[in-house]
Design a protein around this nucleic acid. Structure first.
Lengths: 303, 303
DNA sequence: TCCTGCGATGCCCCGAGAGTATCAATTTCC
DNA sequence: GGAAATTGATACTCTCGGGGCATCGCAGGA
């Protein structure tokens, strides 16, 4: 089945016609196109035949556009301009100079490693548009596997078939207390000291692994945990601590940027451990923009 | 000089790639394109080589888009959609079903023949967008010769090299008077009756021919004309008559749609004659849309 | 009237795209 | 676990069509 074609013309016809329309002179247009004049004449005639429309009125002394010819030039001009930019644009995408990344993160990631990673990334790749969404670990993993996001910053406990991860943070938790809490001035705290103190936690479904490690730490301390609230996203939990509703667990890393009326204490003895990983699909191979972000994250982890 | 080309790819490449990107399957895409699979493989490889960018990650069992491939599809999709519509659109333009007409007219034309011509034309050619501008005869002729308008409705006295005209209206003028004018109830009026009555006229430069025929009519009546105001556009002149500033000349045709407080009187004896023609360039040949409008005008004149 | 310049036409060449046959690699199923 | 099947890539050939060269027909201009 030879040459069954959707379009009755080729790019060549458009370029040739644009040149003739500009110069209104076949010989000069042919010269500009670096072809011979007869070839140009034939191609234009072919284009007109294909469209079933006369685009040029030509006597042997004058060439002028018909109404259809004028309309045709106006149509193809932006098309050609777009196509002209395409190769360079594709190269930019392939090199990761421009692009789009859909990134999900947990509240903990944003409270610890993420801001600095993103800052460095954006400095080196200003052309990449980041679409950032806070999302629980479990949803992030599902979104990754479904191809809805390009990478996620989350807790590593979930099962992660088809997902590769790099550990970015691993810290024993301390606790956040309201600034007027009775224990605020204690040098050393352990979970037993906090017996009876209400805690603010996230819903277990968001990140069962960490949730269970919290419970395990309580159990190891011989303390029955008292869960005052389950709340999401994480930043709201800090707000509740500040409001005096209770305590919550936190990493030393986030202690640097706390609102006032909230204080951070290390824990001695049993304490849960927080981890943050960045995760991405192994297949398809990471796009260049993603590669760049993953490198930025890895570089941050190495410090 | 064979194949010196501005674009490293052809429409074919775009269409083929779109199909592969849709199906992510070379064999099925080839079938849909009615070509053999090896041809498709080669064309895609060629496209990638031309762009210097990998658009697809393919194992022997799975095909998937790279970031550049995704971006490429997004770029070419609208381009192909546009080009697909082009042939039909061009035919529509060539047949005068769609298009654009730049039309100039005098106040007199709009007050007499033009509304009906345009109404009939628009009913038959709803796809033609009309750009209407009121403009004095002298400027219309210049704009026509410069190709700035497609046709004009004006007074035929100007010299019109390279312009063809069709006469649409030819009427002896009467006068418009304020409704409370002393002569309002006179059965028959001539210019001598209006001696001393101030007249509102347009600037002579707008249409010297008619202006001089007005003066000739006054002279033939032995009356010295008294020009109260020179004003443009014409509709403002009627406003001044209504305001009692003076009288003005008008055609019987326009007497049907006068505002209140203005009355029309025929003139006996010497009176100027108004004519309206439609004029257009003889070269280039009128576009189909213009042809249609000219026919509508001629049909109106024939009644 | 002849001359000049322009677009169209005739003829030939060759490059590139398409088809057929086949290969190599990976998955599937018995 | 091995054979069959599926899929994309490669080798080779053919042919279509775009391009060059030579030339024609026609219209203005000196």
């Amino acid at each position: 089945m030879p040459r069954e074609y959707q379009f009755p013309f080729e790019l060549r016809h458009l370029i040739y016609f644009r040149e003739v329309a500009r110069r209104l002179h076949f010989r000069k247009a042919a010269e500009a196109l670096a072809i011979a004049q007869p070839a140009l004449s034939r191609q234009i005639a072919q284009l007109e035949a294909a469209l079933g429309v006369r685009l040029l009125n030509r006597s042997s002394r004058r060439v002028e556009l018909t109404a259809a010819g004028t309309a045709f030039v106006q149509r193809i001009e932006p098309v050609l301009a777009t196509l002209q930019r395409v190769p360079a644009d594709m190269r930019a995408v392939a090199e990761g100079r421009v692009g789009r990344l859909r990134v999900a993160f947990t509240g903990l990631a944003m409270a610890t490693v993420l801001p600095e990673i993103l800052r460095g990334f954006h400095r080196n790749f200003p052309g990449i548009r980041l679409e950032l969404n806070e999302s629980p670990t479990s949803l992030q993993v599902a979104a990754l596997q479904a191809g809805e996001i390009d990478c996620g910053f989350f807790h590593p406990d979930a099962s992660t078939t088809g997902i590769e991860t790099t550990l970015l943070l691993r810290e024993r938790n301390g606790v956040l207390l309201p600034a007027d809490h009775p224990l605020r001035s204690r040098k050393s705290l352990n979970l037993r000291d906090l017996e009876g103190c209400p805690f603010v936690l996230f819903p277990r479904a968001n990140n069962p692994g960490f949730y269970d490690r919290v419970l395990a730490a309580f159990a190891a301390s011989g303390v029955t945990p008292q869960i005052a609230e389950e709340i999401w996203p994480r930043s709201n939990g800090v707000g509740l601590v500040r409001a005096g509703v209770g305590a919550t667990f936190a990493c030393p890393s986030e202690a640097r940027h706390l609102p006032d009326k909230v204080v951070f204490h290390k824990l001695s003895g049993p304490a849960p451990e927080s981890r943050v990983v960045v995760g991405w699909r192994t297949s398809p191979a990471p796009a260049p923009a993603l590669e760049a972000l993953l490198q930025a994250a890895a570089a941050h982890a190495a410090r």
